[in-house]
Amino acid sequence: MAASIALAEAKANLSSVVRCVDETGAEFVVTVRNRPCAMIVPIPKPAPRQLRAAGALAGRRPVASREAEKAAYREALEAKYVDLP
């Protein structure tokens, strides 16, 4: 059941009300002249995303063959050391 809180009290103590909602999951009904007009409730926490064993970036880039990787590495080394005597 939600606790009632007057608008003036909610304004004066908003940070502590929000902290209470976040920590305990309590709900507050804000009243104006004893008439309910708003509700302060916690936001549902999202479920944690599941990571696959291959990692979070798996499938983000095309997989090159082993020969293509070797060739690219060889080309990079040749380009890097082309100026050496």
Rank of each mutant, 00 (worst) to 15 (best):
M1L: 06
A2K: 15
A2M: 04
A3F: 06
I5E: 00
A6F: 08
A6C: 02
A6Y: 06
A8E: 12
A8V: 06
E9V: 01
E9S: 02
A10E: 04
A12D: 12
N13W: 00
S16K: 04
V17A: 06
V17E: 04
R19F: 11
V21T: 14
V21M: 04
E23C: 02
E23L: 05
T24R: 10
T24S: 14
T24Q: 13
G25N: 07
G25V: 09
E27R: 14
V30H: 00
T31E: 11
T31W: 00
V32L: 09
R33A: 12
R33Y: 04
N34W: 02
N34F: 04
P36V: 00
C37T: 13
M39H: 01
M39Q: 11
I40E: 03
V41E: 15
I43G: 06
P44C: 06
P44D: 05
K45R: 10
K45Y: 00
P46G: 03
P46Q: 04
A47V: 08
A47C: 01
P48E: 03
P48V: 05
P48K: 07
P48S: 04
P48Y: 03
R49S: 03
R49Q: 06
L51M: 09
L51V: 10
R52G: 15
R52M: 11
A56Y: 10
L57S: 08
A58C: 08
G59Q: 04
R60T: 07
P62Y: 10
A64W: 09
A64N: 08
R66I: 11
R66D: 09
E67P: 02
A68H: 04
K70N: 14
A71C: 07
A72D: 15
E75T: 10
E75F: 13
E75L: 14
E75N: 12
A76E: 14
E78Q: 14
K80Q: 10
Y81A: 06
Y81P: 03
Y81W: 12
Y81L: 13
V82T: 09
D83N: 08
L84S: 02
P85I: 03
P85Q: 02
